[in-house]
Computed example of a mutant assay.
Amino acid sequence: MKTKLTKQLETTLYHYCLDQGAYVVEEVSMPAKKGIVDTLSYEVAANGDVVWRCFELKVTKADFHSKAKLSFIGHYNYFVLPRELYDAVRDEIPAHVGVLIYQPFDARAKALAPHPLRTPGFLTLVKKAQAQALQVDETALTHHFVGSLFREVDKAKRVKKGLQLYSDDQLFKELRKRAQVGYDVYTPEHNLYDRFSAELEDQAVTALQTELDARNAECQALKLQLAKLHAPDLGERL
């Protein structure tokens, strides 16, 4: 699970890369079993060359010293760290790896911002990355990059479409699962099933009342028509 701080770094880095004119995606599996990079950016330089940048996000010493493989296979590679962590591990960072420091916006900065802030903080480049040759086949890397982009687009479409993607059976199973968590007999309105059932009942009553009102209106209209038809006969008898 990603921590709140990790998500803040991830969001800020995403927009940082966009501002640099790069295409960016998180959690990209590398070709040739080179691990999974936290963030990968694809940038086209002024001369037309493609520049790949890999970013590894770390928020604690334990995270920094993790045995997980560092996928620094790009032309430029960076650690993205909070200030406190950078101060603690700066001597352990390889010479060719750059460092971006994350700092959150304080309450005053948020209050003075003329527009809502897109990110929870900002990044500062404190150590430049040294260029290296790409460590994997570029065609294979491009395929992995596109595949990860598709994954994110697919996730966004699923979120937009919401529950309509799920079958009735799936929704019913989820409803039953949540209802089994614990039934509150004293406050039924706190129970998901009761709330759902009550809303359905209200909708049914409203629909029936609407139908009844329509039938009554139709009945009254027919009575008026019948009254008009019989009115001449009544005049002749008088």
Rank of each mutant, 00 (worst) to 15 (best):
W52P: 01
F64E: 12
K58W: 13
V37Q: 05
G48V: 14
L57R: 13
K69R: 09
A68D: 12
D38S: 08
A62K: 12
F64V: 14
E43D: 09
S66W: 08
G35K: 06
L70Q: 03
V51I: 15
T60N: 05
V51R: 07
M30W: 03
T60Y: 15
K33E: 14
V59C: 11
G35V: 04
I36E: 06
R53F: 09
G35E: 02
G48D: 08
E56Y: 06
V28H: 05
K33P: 00
K33H: 09
K61M: 09
R53E: 06
P31N: 10
S66N: 02
E27W: 03
L70M: 12
L40P: 00
K67G: 04
V59Q: 12
K61Q: 13
K34E: 12
D63M: 12
G35I: 08
I36H: 03
K67N: 13
V59Y: 14
M30E: 03
T60V: 15
G48L: 09
S66G: 09
G74W: 06
V44A: 00
T39I: 13
V37K: 04
N47E: 04
S71D: 01
F72R: 07
G35C: 11
N47G: 00
D38E: 09
S29R: 13
V59P: 05
E27S: 02
F64M: 07
E43T: 10
L70I: 15
I73S: 01
G74Q: 08
K34R: 11
Y42Q: 11
M30I: 09
I73G: 00
C54Y: 06
A45F: 07
V44K: 11
G74D: 06
A46C: 04
F64S: 08
N47H: 08
W52T: 06
S41G: 03
D38R: 13
K58C: 07
G74T: 09
A68M: 10
H65Q: 10
K69H: 05
P31H: 08
M30P: 00
A45P: 04
V50P: 02
F55E: 00
L57G: 04
C54K: 03
V37I: 15
G48W: 14
A45V: 01
V50R: 00
S71W: 05
E56G: 01
V50M: 01
E27G: 03
R53H: 04
V44Q: 11
C54R: 01
V59M: 13
Y42N: 03
S29A: 14
L40N: 02
E27D: 04
C54D: 02
E43K: 15
A45T: 12
I73A: 02
A68W: 02
A32S: 10
K69E: 07
W52H: 06
F55V: 11
